[in-house]
Each structure stands twice: as structure tokens, then as C-alpha cells.
Amino acid sequence: MTEQLDSIKQKILIVDDHEAILEGTIPALRTKYPIAEIFTAKDSQTAEKLLEQYHFDLVVVDLSLPRKPDDFAKVEVGMHLLANLMQSNDAPNIVVLSTNIKPLVRIKRIVNTYEGGFAAMDKSLPLTEMLKFVDIAQRGSIYLPKEVRSRPEFDRKWLEVLTLKYQEGLSDKAIAKRMSITDRTVRNYWIRIQDALGVFDSPDKDLRVQIEIAARKAGLISN
């Protein structure tokens, strides 16, 4: 199937704010898909405009992106773009090319039910490896690296609790108010988060600090 795709004029979008990555990725894809139209975007705002204009067969995207030119790159921006892309009607094949792929655990449920092909890899790997992952996505298969596959799926509400606590600094009472739930429900969420992360209470350590450390290592909240 990938051999047939090589000879079909496809539209490919590469979203990455690093010029060096673009300089390597574009020629590699051009060699594999010589008649493809290749578009690039260095921020999510530009990518969104292109996605509104064209139907892309393949999207290669970094997870850490600036929202608009001259902004700092943030994982939240790339994750938001990726989640929206995967829930669109177009369902293009997607390859995530990033130095930190652990945040994908946040949308693992969406990835596993995605209608298009999906593959993710560390961008430090050789370009020849990237093309192998492109083949996986173009076949319509789903591939997640072991460090993402091995992590338990996290409920969206658990992720919201982690974000409100460790990125906005809210107390449990404030979290309950923001989420329109009871204090008891928040406590139950913490127990489930603790179990999912494999964090155990210890008299010598602050439990919430240990949860934060484990959540950051798992890519559930940004460092």
C-alpha cells in the first residue's frame, strides 16, 4: 500500500518550529513522495489556517509548538492542536515527531480509537527511522512507543485535577468549586490518581509532592 501511496500526489503538512528539523524532514519526505505537495507551519495558528484550507493526507507534527510567531513553544499548544486534529472529520494520517512524547499518554484513549493512521517517535532518531514510522501511519496502523503504551489511561477529570493543582496552584476546595463537584469527589480522584501512578503514602514524604513528581515523569503535566 505504501508503494502505491508513493506515486500518488499527496498533500503533506509538517508542523515544527525548528528550522533544522524542517531542513531534514522535507528532503526525506520529498525523496519518498516525489510528487507530493509539502506545506510547512512553524506555529499552531499557521497550521490551523492551512488545515482549514486543505485536506492533508499526512501531518507530521511536533508536540512543543508556539501558538503564533515569536511566542515560546509549549507542549500544551501542540497537544491542543493534535487533539483537535484527531477529532476533525478529515482524519489525516499523523506522525508525531518530538523530543518528548510522554504527554501523549494524556490522549491515549483518543489515539487508540483514531480513524486514521498514527505513529509517534523521538525526533532524535535518524531520518530513516522517521520514514518507517511514516509507513506505519500511512498504512492506517496505530503505533505508540512503549513509554506511552505502558502508562495507564487517565480519565479526563483526573488530568484536570492535576492541572488545577500543579499548574494553577488551587486547593482541593477550589478545585471542587471550579469543576462543580464535591470535596469528597476530589478526594476520590486523588486516590485513583495515586493508584494509577503507583505512588504510595509514606510517613517520610509529602504524598502530593510525590504525586506531582510521578505525574511530571509520566508526561501528564508539563515540566
Rank of each mutant, 00 (worst) to 15 (best):
K11Y: 09
I12M: 08
L13M: 11
I14S: 05
D16K: 01
E19S: 15
E19V: 13
T25R: 03
I26Q: 12
K32R: 15
Y33G: 04
P34R: 06
A36P: 01
A36G: 08
T40Y: 00
K42G: 14
S44F: 01
Q45S: 13
T46F: 04
A47F: 09
A47C: 02
K49L: 15
L50G: 05
L51Y: 06
Y54W: 11
H55R: 12
D57G: 12
V61A: 11
D62F: 03
L63Y: 03
K68A: 15
P69G: 10
D71K: 06
D71E: 10
A73Q: 05
M79G: 02
N84S: 14
L85H: 06
L85D: 00
M86L: 13
Q87A: 12
Q87R: 14
S88A: 14
D90R: 11
D90N: 08
I101V: 15
I101Y: 04
P103G: 08
P103Y: 03
L104P: 00
V105Q: 01
N112H: 11
Y114H: 07
Y114F: 14
G116N: 06
A119E: 05
A120P: 07
L127N: 07
T128M: 06
E129G: 12
E129Y: 12
M130W: 09
M130I: 03
L131F: 05
V134Q: 05
Q138N: 15
